[in-house]
Amino acid sequence: MTAILKRELSSYFNSATAYVVMAAYFVFSGIFFTYFCFGFNTTSLAGVYGNMFYIIMFIIPIITMKTLSEEKHQKTDQALLTSPTSLTEIVIGKFLGAFILYAVCCCIFLVYAVVISFFAAPDWPVILCTFLGIILLGATLIAINVFISALTESMIIAAVVGMALGLLISFLKNISDMLSIDWVTFVLEKINPLTYYTNFTYGILSITDIVFFITVTGLFLFFTVRVLEKRRWS
């Protein structure tokens, strides 16, 4: 697993990928930060975090698009699958690689909190709670996108499907409002990651929300292992 993780990280940081992703993340979070915090004269980062989903739903598919699709495409999966390393180790290594890059991006929020502290006392518990929220949301999206990457040989398809899914998640609330059928609204609300994420941005730390993200992450990593396993048998 460490071998895969090391290779993933070196492939991100030895190419432009990591820097382009980080630059995009910093630029947009910076714009949100300036607009919401300075524009509205507030120390609350809730507005910034609330809108960050629109950025990460594009950034995460870009980070993960080639994790497994490119292996299949370049036939390097032959080296992975014929090595004594198990599929679970491979998938978790890939996941952690993408996750660490994402987590590095998220650390910019701690910088913003420090910037705020020059003007007023920041609300650290809320900031850290929200930080945990965006990390967990990211982990879940990364697991889903790694799964999508395992389904295809083309990283373009993986990225496009991942982004479309992100858009769908962001529209989920509007869709359920539009349909206004009770049980559909109920189901959509329960499966919408943003429902759980929003609680974090308000500074509410609840076990339900944490469990939701961890479960979905685990589930999709498990699915990914099954997809790779199934491919060998078909």
Partner: peptide, 24 residues
Amino acid sequence: PEIPPIYVDMTVKKYLEFMFDLKK
């Protein structure tokens, strides 16, 4: 395999180190 499973973005040494770790 027929197509060598090599990562073209790595140096030869780094690649072999990776495979060394992967093969435990």
